[in-house]
Each structure stands twice: as C-alpha cells, then as structure tokens.
Simulated assay, not measured.
Amino acid sequence: MGSAAGEGSKGGLGGVLSGVAVAVGLLLFLAGFGWAAVTYRPYTVPTSSMAPTIDAGDRVLAQRVDGAEVRRGDVVVFSDKTWVTGSDVVKRVVAVGGDTVACCTDGKLTVNGKPVDEPYLPKGAPAEVQGFPTVTVPKGRLFLLGDERQGSLDSTAHLSDAAGGTVSRSAVAARVDSVVWPMRGMLARPTGFEAMGTLSRPGPLPFIEAMIVAGAVLVLGGAAYGPIAARVGRSRARTGAEPVHVG
C-alpha cells in the first residue's frame, strides 16, 4: 500500500509540473510573438541594390523606430515622395545631419574626412559612385547609399533634388535587424562607423526568438509527459502482474 501511494504521489506531482510547464510555455510562446508583432515589421526587398547584405526577394524584419534614433551604418526602411518609387525603400545611412560625405579616398567613402571601412560591400566591388560630389547633409536629414553602389538608385541619384538627395529623418519607418528568409540572421554591425559616433544598439529579436523557442520546448515537453508517464505506468503494471512459477 505504501508503494502504491508513493507512486500515485509522484504521478500527481509530475502531472502538476507538466501542466505548469505547458502554461509557462504557452505564455512565453504567445508573449514572444506578441512582442515581435508590436516591435517589428516584415518587408520583402524587391531589388538587389542592397546586395550582398540583402538580395532581391529576401524577407527582412525591421524594428519600428523613430527617425531620431537612426545612426550611421543603419539599414533603414523609409518612404520619400520625391524619390517616386511608389513603395518603401531600403538603404544604408552613411551620413547624418551636419556630416560631410564624399567619395572617395583610397577607394573608400569618407565621412567628415575619415575613410570608412565597409566590409558589407560586394567583394571586389569599388566603393566609388560615379559623379558623386562632396555633400554636406542638412540638419535633421540623412544621406543613404545602397551596398551595391553601381546599381542603386539612392541619394546619389537624387542630388539634383531640392534636398540634394537627402531624406528627412521623419521619413524613416523602421531599421532592418535581420534577414529571415532565406535565414541569414542578424545584420553584421557596421563597425566602420564607430570612430564617428555610437552605433545603434541591436534590437530585441534574439531575445524574442529565445522566448519563442523556449516556450515551444516547454509546451511540447509538458504535453508529452502525460502519454509517456501513462505508458511507463502500464508497462510497470504488466511487469508486476506476471505470475510467479514455483519449481
């Protein structure tokens, strides 16, 4: 009797723990998706102007940010009517208000007279942009380039506009954090701009992903406990009920 009671007690505790695991897992799973829905927006990039960082047709997640938060090196999503694209545009911020940007010194883009290392450019491709003069970016505006410099309709293609190719910070809707399809993960940090100021902090996407994965594991593990425990119990019962043959 003592043994049976002990087994029942253990089974009851296991059932409670499995229920708690499922509940916590569901909470983490749903909270992760909810957080992602509030914080991020998905976009499909239609052109290869940001290759190889982002290829044509890639699906990205971009964190909703205020334009005032944007810093040099960020890849942003924006909409500017003067660019007449009819859709959101994805480019890299290379200069902000007050900066002087030019091309090129020793084959490198310069910002405020300092050459910038840009490892995200296509291998073997020059940083030069043909016909790109020195530009001083007005306060509250941004100068943006594609990583594929030779095929990008970016700020250099709009130098004759009234704003000299620059875009207002208020036009920015989001900052790209990750390429999710195909799964390339988080964008590399634009460390070449560190000498000119603080870089943007990465968004919470890795933590959100960890929440979702942990939640899924807890739900599956907790849900699997019941059938496994029942099967083990039946197996033990059959073993205990086997007749004992004497001599």
Rank of each mutant, 00 (worst) to 15 (best):
V22N: 08
G11Q: 06
A171V: 02
H245Q: 09
G6C: 09
I212R: 10
T82S: 10
L121C: 04
A210T: 14
R41F: 06
D161E: 11
L187M: 05
Q63W: 10
A102L: 00
A216M: 08
G34A: 15
F132R: 03
S18L: 04
D106I: 05
L26N: 10
Y120T: 03
A21G: 14
G32L: 12
A229H: 06
V213R: 15
G185V: 13
V101S: 06
L13E: 10
G73P: 00
G67Q: 03
Y40M: 05
F29H: 14
S48P: 09
G107K: 06
L30Y: 12
C103G: 06
F143E: 05
A23I: 12
V167F: 02
A5M: 13
S18I: 04
V135F: 03
L17K: 09
G2P: 06
V24A: 15
V77G: 08
A162Y: 04
V24T: 12
E194N: 10
V219Q: 10
H158C: 10
E209V: 12
F193A: 01
T53I: 10
L142H: 01
A157Y: 06
D161C: 02
R169I: 09
T198Q: 09
R149N: 00
V217G: 07
S152M: 01
S168T: 02
Y40T: 03
